[in-house]
Amino acid sequence: MGPSPSFAWRLQDFLAHPIRLGIIVALLVGIPTSILLVDELRVGALGSTEGRIAVLLLLLATGGTVGLISGQLLQALRRQAFTDSLTGLYNRRFMDAQLGLLDSRAGRYGRNYSVLVFDIDGLKQVNDTHGHDVGDIALRRFATILTDALRRSDVAIRTGGDEFVAVLPETPCADARIIFDRIRARVFALRETDPRLTIGVSAGAVGWRSGRSLEKLVKDADTLLLSAKRAGKDRLETEPVPA
């Protein structure tokens, strides 16, 4: 018997998360008699010999089928696991799995960074008036604007719905306003090329401080985003500069 139909999805999910010693692979592949002990396989090891061996063991566990998995396929699986299918940006899974590295780098080397959390104003009205297909166009256009406004070292993420996050390494919070103003102007200009895209953008911005994790930064920026929405939308709220 070959692999189950949902094996590809389960393999993708397996590759996207750290695996601790003693994980019962049967829970992932649906075969209660198959147990593999894997010592902390991480996404970063997918191109390694250990990563390939672990994948082959998984194939064996699904019914004795031995397959040859190339490095390109492993990279494709990783990219699919970490990419938002609508916009092509990174997704929340990527943020949760990878960007914690910024915390250790910031703490060790004093390399600060800022976080912007965006919400698209008026997207619900676009969906209600023109349909979700046009709403999807608005989301993709915003993703393009966001990517174009950022540097190559910055990271753009769609965390879900109409909310996006930008992580800006080596950037103080004061500079986040320059980026926001650039994005806001380009979003407003969308209606000139497509009158259906009557959207705006609100955001909250915070900067890293010692002892402040990425998770806390995102939560604080989201709180400021809510303040921007309550204050009339189409604006950026930032935290006070510490004395």
Rank of each mutant, 00 (worst) to 15 (best):
M95E: 09
L168I: 10
D175G: 06
A143V: 07
S104Q: 14
S104I: 15
D84A: 14
L99K: 01
E163C: 08
P172V: 15
T171C: 15
F142Q: 04
A174T: 13
A81H: 04
N91P: 03
D148T: 08
T147F: 09
A138I: 04
S114I: 14
I120V: 04
D175P: 02
S153W: 05
R158Y: 03
F118G: 02
A97Y: 07
F118P: 00
N127T: 04
L89F: 02
F118T: 04
N91S: 03
L86V: 06
I178V: 09
D96N: 08
F94A: 07
N112H: 12
S114Q: 10
D84W: 07
S104A: 11
G88T: 09
G122D: 03
G100N: 15
G135H: 00
V117D: 08
V167N: 05
R92H: 07
A138G: 01
L89G: 02
D121S: 06
G160V: 12
T144L: 14
A143D: 04
F142E: 06
V167F: 08
L101R: 11
S85I: 15
C173D: 06
A97H: 05
M95H: 02
S153F: 06
L168R: 07
T159I: 13
R177I: 10
L102A: 10
D148R: 02
R93N: 07
R177V: 12
H130L: 10
L150H: 02
D148A: 13
R158T: 03
K124M: 12
F82R: 04
D162H: 02
F82V: 09
N127I: 12
H132T: 09
G107K: 13
F142S: 04
V165H: 01
R140L: 11
Y90F: 10
N91H: 00
Q125F: 11
L101K: 11
G161W: 05
V126T: 01
A149C: 05
D96A: 15
D162V: 09
R105Q: 13
P169W: 14
L116E: 08
Y109M: 11
A174E: 15
I145H: 00
T83I: 11
R111F: 12
A156P: 01
A174W: 10
F94L: 11
A138M: 03
Y90L: 10
F94V: 08
S114A: 15
L89T: 01
F82S: 06
R108E: 09
A174D: 12
D96R: 08
S114C: 13
V115K: 01
N127D: 05
C173F: 09
I137H: 00
G122K: 00
D128I: 14
A81S: 12
Y113K: 09
L99F: 11
A97I: 11
L123W: 01
I137Q: 04
R92N: 08
G160L: 14
L123N: 01
D162M: 12
A106I: 12
D103P: 03
G107W: 11
V167K: 05
A97K: 07
G135P: 00
I157V: 15
V134Q: 02
T83M: 15
I145F: 06
I157K: 02
A143G: 01
A174F: 13
Q125W: 10
I179V: 15
D121M: 10
I179H: 02
